[in-house]
Design a protein around this nucleic acid. Structure first.
Lengths: 336, 336
DNA sequence: TTGTACGCGTTATCAA
DNA sequence: TTGATAACGCGTACAA
């Protein structure tokens, strides 16, 4: 292993000088000739500073940790992507962790807080509030992504209410009146807030919300499937469905397929989250594209600020949800 | 920040003893009473060893890096999942990196090799052979996942040939004769090998392979889409299609939808990779489930061995591909 | 403009 | 069974 001493010896200078050159210390002056000689030697010996030593000395790792529930959920891909890009811009590295990981630790975040990261992005949407609150005791800076927990005042969320309204309004504008909503879990902020958007759109158009038309799901294919089955079994099934998540929408499409219903002839379907394969579905799915990439970026941006300046609070809502119209929604022609 | 000295002082012992207790050193004996006292103090002060210091001292990070092309590709989710689980079992952490990450570094892996990881899993399937070969100069142990490069003799691959045969045989058994294959890129091992499986199945059933029936894709929805369009435009379109990847299959389904063809009535479709939403597609997609989770596990297992014992070579093929029969494939009833 | 001395927090080795 | 010392590789006051 090549160390800073090797470089120094080869270049005929003291290790300190090498360190200064590599860290681009502006306050000290270094003769151009020695700087060049040192940089050449660095290349020649293929020297990289030992990160562990740097970390120890500087008491920082330039590494951010991100915790997600599951890599298989396509929603997180884009958040990660945005977070990665922004982290690179800010000179940080990103380490992504899935909660599916087995392992018996003190608590679920111990891997990440033991001097391995400078800060954490928590994007888990399951109800592990207790552990998150405990995380506060560790004094490690962290920020919630797409969720809110009482007592924790650093978070970045989407404008889910607007998204819910957008989806519902779209269906209303197509002439639908019997509009159902497959919600997210009511114990999550996103589930509740998207539902609020739905309610607002319905109310401001003086449409009644039937209890039977509101079916809770758990952001999974299976729960979307059974929710849709219940809707299809109603005496008066809805002519349009707003799915609170892409996974629920996939489940709903499957239920429709099995029941022999076709979309959008038998009912229209719009879903939150414009995944890459949305237009490869049959029919191509109308979606609400959420600014997930931007949320990832903003999360990192604000976390880095939190690390550096000890920001008091971060209450950020990312706007920019937009409707992507595809074939799964259509005008309601005849009364059913 | 709580250090080992704080704990030692509080427990009235020397830091060395604390270190021994925490590292469960078996060779040295420690009085039960002091051990208990130390462990209590550790809990009391909520002490965690500083990883940077440990890393520096031990000259290892207990961290593995994994490089994938893109988080959005559902195929990698399961590999990551298996790798994460195995890493946890072996006492390692996993850091996943996407090549989509922007950032101007010496080379693409520099983040990961600068004393930050003990070893690397390279799962990128793009043609960045040059950089990978250069990686060898860094002396950092690494292992290829699902690809082979001449001159690099540590890799874990799937039995893609078997998978190709399995898919094609399934179609043949359903009575199909006009079987097309949307291949992966021919400059990738998986693309070539799956194609070989297809060829073998066709030949051993004395079926001819038409040039027009072999369409190259680049493992993307778009390329699958245009490949399928070409197949549909043929004078004698195939009655069955074997897609070399799930993304290609999605594109193919979209092309069929747009052309007004229905699956499996107009043609059967089978694809490599059993993604979680395969049975939520319309129709539910018959797939070849590849042992991706196991591949992730084995990759980590072998990389750790490579780190520890300097294994000479790792040429591992993971078996266990299986057909998941769903509605997208059906018996060929009448001659077309 | 360059060199010296020290310490970051931990653990391996040796001594007691 | 426990304590003392040194060292991992680096960066930073301070001195020259």
């Amino acid at each position: 292993m090549t160390t800073i001493k090797d470089v120094a010896k080869r270049a005929g200078v003291h290790p300190t000088v090498v360190s200064r050159v590599l860290n681009k210390d502006q306050t000290l002056k270094i003769k151009d000739s020695t700087r060049e000689r040192i940089l050449e030697t660095v290349k020649e010996l293929n020297y990289f500073p030992n990160r562990s030593a740097q970390n120890l000395k500087r008491n920082e790792t330039k590494m951010l940790g991100m915790v997600i529930p599951d890599f298989a959920n396509p929603v997180y891909s884009e958040i990660i992507h945005g977070a990665e890009d922004q982290a690179a811009k800010e000179g940080y590295n990103l380490m992504v962790y899935s909660m599916k990981q087995k392992g018996t630790e003190h608590n679920k975040f111990s891997h990440l807080i033991e001097g391995r990261t400078d800060g954490l992005l928590i994007a888990i949407s399951e109800s592990e509030d207790q552990e998150i609150v405990e995380l506060q005791e560790s004094k490690k800076p962290f920020l919630l992504i797409n969720r809110m927990i009482p007592g924790i005042n650093h978070y970045v969320v989407l404008d889910d209410e607007f998204a819910g309204k957008l989806a519902t309004d779209h269906l209303i504008q197509l002439g639908h009146r019997k509009i159902a909503h497959i919600t997210g879990p009511f114990d999550t902020g996103t589930g509740k807030t998207r539902f609020n958007g739905y309610k607002q759109a319905m109310h401001s158009n003086e449409l009644e919300i039937l209890n039977d038309y509101v079916q809770e799901s758990s952001y999974s294919i299976e729960s979307g499937y059974s929710a849709m089955k219940k809707l299809l079994a109603l005496k008066e099934p809805p002519t349009a469905v707003f799915a609170g998540s892409i996974l629920a929408a996939l489940g709903a499409m499957r239920a429709a397929y099995e029941a022999g219903r076709t979309i959008p002839n038998d009912f229209s379907l719009v879903s939150i989250h414009d995944v890459p394969f949305a237009d490869a579905l049959q029919p191509p799915l109308t979606t609400i594209k959420m600014p997930l990439y931007e949320m990832g970026q903003e999360a990192v941006k604000n976390l880095v600020q939190l690390i550096k300046k000890d920001t008091q609070s971060t209450h950020l809502t990312i706007n920019g949800a937009e409707l992507i119209k595809r074939n799964s929604t259509a005008e309601l022609l005849s009364e059913k």
